[in-house]
Design a binder for these strands. Structure first.
Lengths: 219, 219
DNA sequence: CAGCTCATGTGAACAGCTTTTACATAAGGC
DNA sequence: GCCTTATGTAAAAGCTGTTCACATGAGCTG
């Protein structure tokens, strides 16, 4: 919340208590405000005007930093994918202690991200930002996917060469499963379906069964 | 498109060429207009005003039939779930020729619906209609899910009693997988990710591997 | 058929949103 | 110290959702 404005400190950060004409860090302040709004009212409830208000600037100011509403949303999503990638990478931990366990950790991390950062997750997957008009978004998404792909590759290679399933397909399956569970049962808290078990357990069971079917049972 | 207005015919249906004061079938005309708009511009692009315009009535008229924008969207989604249920039920075909094959047909039907009715699918899963405020929506969704559950039950029962996986869990897994693939790769045509295989093949492979893992390989 | 009632439409209005335009301000390099 | 340029404002146009009082006419009741 303390965006600091070029290092000078003062009593800013209290909503409209801004003194200088220039904000100093409006771009990030807007993204942060957008995140709060999306978390509170869903991706459709986010408005440029309210983000501007919450950053203490006029409704026109955001357009110095973003072409339009979609561009702001796309930037939120891009930032989300970057954090997502880092989060998954940490969970994967270069395949330690073993690729089987590590892949399970990636799955849990996927759901944990959807649950603890529902605003990012919404912007990334549910805001309907057209990927064709925001190629940087697609690339950021691909980088996240690459982690899962890498994990599947490494796990697949624990099998003898002629029994290895195609890693790309595995990755697509596990990604789809995780995304399905996340968007049906594990995003935020509003308007979601109830479940007789935790989403994490549901995903873990599915992955175990799936890997069993590939001949990749627990080592 | 020819809503017929109490059976009388004339040259209506040409946009604003309506003669009588009362529309006669506004409710359904609005739902149809909403579907077209959602299909064309996504769930966020749909506006009550434009739906009213396309039905040839004033912007206030829709509020005689729907409490607000969300209520209209929820009704579209409800209708979508009803068609979805019927569609899945047909694909299931009471488990013929055998429950294994029939479950595969249900999966294909799931994706086919998402692809051929992207507007319904959007309204059902991506519009962010709060389920708590529209219980009839949740119930309609549950009825669709029940088909998948039934299919899993019947397939599970082809195994000896002590080897049967819990049908509810199976159904959740397969539903999540289908939904994940549908929303990542198989809805409409805009802004989606490319795939090295058809979504149908991707899903079929996943389900086969999953069932294999449960000890439910092809009979 | 006359008349009443009620569902369903209209028009006008308000508030809020997105986005553009012309103008204001200040930061930083010459 | 001045000039350029990035970044802010105010005002406006054209949308939107939604509500209000009022208009219309379909169908029942007598």
């Amino acid at each position: 919340m303390s965006w600091s404005r070029h290092g000078r400190d003062g009593d800013e950060g209290r909503g409209k208590g801004r003194r200088s004409y220039h904000h100093g860090n409006l771009r990030e302040a807007l993204i942060e405000a957008a995140l709060d709004l999306i978390a509170a009212k869903g991706p459709a409830g986010f408005t440029v005007a309210e983000a501007a208000r919450s950053a203490g600037v006029s409704p026109a100011a955001p357009y110095r930093h973003f072409r339009d509403r979609d561009a702001l949303m796309a930037d939120v999503a891009r930032q989300g994918f970057e954090r997502f990638e880092a989060f998954l990478k940490t969970a994967w931990a270069d395949g330690r202690p073993d690729s089987f366990t590590a892949l399970g950790n990636v799955g849990r991390a996927y759901l944990a991200f959807a649950r603890t950062e529902p605003a990012y997750y919404s912007a990334m997957f549910e805001a309907g930002v057209p990927l064709d008009e925001h190629p940087e978004l697609r690339e950021a998404g691909d980088r996240s996917f690459a982690i899962v792909r890498k994990a599947c590759e490494q796990l697949s290679e624990t099998l003898p060469k002629d029994e290895r399933p195609p890693a790309l397909m595995m990755a697509l399956h596990i990604w789809s499963l995780s995304h399905g569970i996340a968007s049906l049962f594990a995003r935020g808290d509003a308007g979601l379906r109830k479940l007789p078990m935790s989403p994490e357990d549901l995903l873990e069971a599915a992955v175990l069964i799936y890997l069993q079917g590939l001949g990749l049972g627990r080592p």
